Amino acid sequence: MTEYKLVVVGAGGVGKSALTIQLIQNHFVDEYDPTIEDSYRKQVVIDGETCLLDILDTAGQEEYSAMRDQYMRTGEGFLCVFAINNTKSFEDIHHYREQIKRVKDSEDVPMVLVGNKCDLPSRTVDTKQAQDLARSYGIPFIETSAKTRQGVDDAFYTLVREIRKHKEKMSKDGKKKKKKSKTKCVIM
């Protein structure tokens, strides 16, 4: 069974824990209790493949930012979460993405942009803004509501699919490099 290491990042209060708990335990946590770091595991079937999701729910508070490099190193894919009623959390996505790329030393890291709290009427981040940002990053965008469960499975499952595509691409690139290195030079 394939294991996928997913990391949920975003500013404090955007609903990272609520999304994760909704996926794992099928219930909505409405009281806000700032996370330092929590880890969850769940076995699911995605596109006919049974897999184990190892999900790291991270601290959004700035005082825990020193811990970010460590979990970013171990993560295979990242859910970059903002709240649709919090423009600052949307603007912060850029910083999370840049930090992930720096730590992973790669421009090509599996990510999904997630606009959470889409059940709320007080939207300050337009869907088109988020779609445009995701398009500019070359990553999928999904709106979710941890409260109603809308888009929750889709967000995590899409990230797994992005990781699969990335692994497939990397193995193809690896095979191309191996083929090239088999060419021999004969000096007579």
Rank of each mutant, 00 (worst) to 15 (best):
D126Y: 08
V112E: 00
L79V: 08
D108P: 05
C118T: 11
V114D: 00
V81F: 08
R123K: 12
D108N: 09
R68L: 02
S106R: 09
Q70Y: 07
C118I: 10
E76H: 13
F82H: 09
K88A: 14
K104T: 15
E91V: 05
V103S: 05
C80N: 02
T124E: 13
L120S: 13
Y64R: 02
I84Y: 15
V81M: 11
R68A: 05
S122M: 10
Q70I: 06
K101C: 14
M111C: 04
K104I: 09
Y64K: 02
R102S: 11
D69E: 12
G77W: 02
K117V: 15
R68H: 04
M111E: 00
G75V: 09
V81Y: 01
V81E: 04
N116Q: 14
R73C: 10
G115A: 14
R73L: 08
P110V: 03
F78S: 01
E107I: 10
Y96G: 01
K88L: 09
Q99A: 11
G75K: 02
D69H: 07
D119W: 02
N116D: 05
N86S: 11
Y71P: 14
D108R: 07
E98P: 01
F78T: 02
R123L: 11
T124A: 13
E107H: 09
H95V: 09
E76S: 10
A66T: 10
K117L: 15
R102E: 05
Q70M: 07
R102W: 04
T124C: 11
D108K: 06
C80T: 03
G77E: 03
L120W: 10
C80S: 03
T74R: 13
D126T: 09
V81T: 08
G75A: 14
V103Y: 06
P121C: 08
M72S: 06
E76W: 14
E63I: 02
A66G: 14
K117D: 11
G77P: 00
V109E: 02
V109H: 02
Y71T: 13
D69V: 01
V114S: 01
M67T: 06
K101M: 13
Q70L: 05
D108V: 07
D69F: 02
M67I: 10
T124G: 12
Y96S: 03
E98K: 04
R123C: 13
R97L: 15
G115R: 04
Q70W: 04
F90Y: 11
K88C: 11
G75F: 08
F82Q: 03
D119G: 09
Y96I: 15
E63P: 04
E63V: 03
D69C: 03
C80Q: 03
K88R: 09
N116S: 13
C118P: 07
T87G: 13
R73E: 11
C118F: 09
L113P: 00
F78R: 01
K117N: 14
D92G: 05
E98W: 01
P110R: 02
K104S: 12
D126H: 08
A83R: 05
S65H: 08
M67E: 03
I84W: 13
V112G: 01
D108S: 08
N86W: 01
L113K: 00
V125E: 14
M72A: 06
C80P: 00
R68P: 03
C118A: 10
D126L: 07
S122R: 07
F90G: 05
F82R: 00
V114H: 00
F78Q: 00
N116G: 09
E98D: 08
I100G: 01
S122V: 09
K104W: 14
D108W: 05
M111W: 06
S65C: 08
K104Y: 07
K117R: 13
V114L: 10
K88Q: 13
R102L: 11
P110F: 02
F82D: 02
P121T: 13
D105G: 15
R102V: 05
L113W: 10
M111K: 02
D126E: 10
Y64W: 01
C80D: 01
T74I: 07
S106M: 13
V81A: 06
D105R: 07
N86G: 13
S122N: 12
R97P: 03
V114Q: 02
D105E: 10
M111G: 01
V109N: 01
V114T: 02
V103H: 09
R102A: 12
D126P: 07
F82I: 09
A83G: 14
K101Y: 08
V109S: 03
V112T: 02
I84S: 15
P110W: 00
E63Q: 08
E63A: 03
V109D: 01
Q99I: 12
K104C: 12
G77L: 10
V125I: 10
Q99S: 11
T74P: 05
E98T: 04
F78D: 00
A83L: 01
N116A: 15
T74V: 09
L79A: 04
G115T: 08
M67A: 04
P121Q: 13
K117M: 15
D126G: 09
M72Y: 04
S65P: 05
G115F: 14
G77A: 14
S65V: 08
V125Q: 13
T124W: 09
V109Q: 03
M72P: 12
N86I: 03
V112K: 00
S106E: 13
P121W: 09
G77C: 13
R123E: 15
S89E: 05
P110H: 03
M111N: 00
G115W: 08
M111I: 10
T74C: 09
D119Q: 04
G115D: 03
A83Q: 14
T124Q: 12
A83D: 15
V109A: 05
T74D: 14
M67N: 11
P110L: 02
P110N: 02
L113C: 07
I100W: 08
P110T: 03
P110M: 02
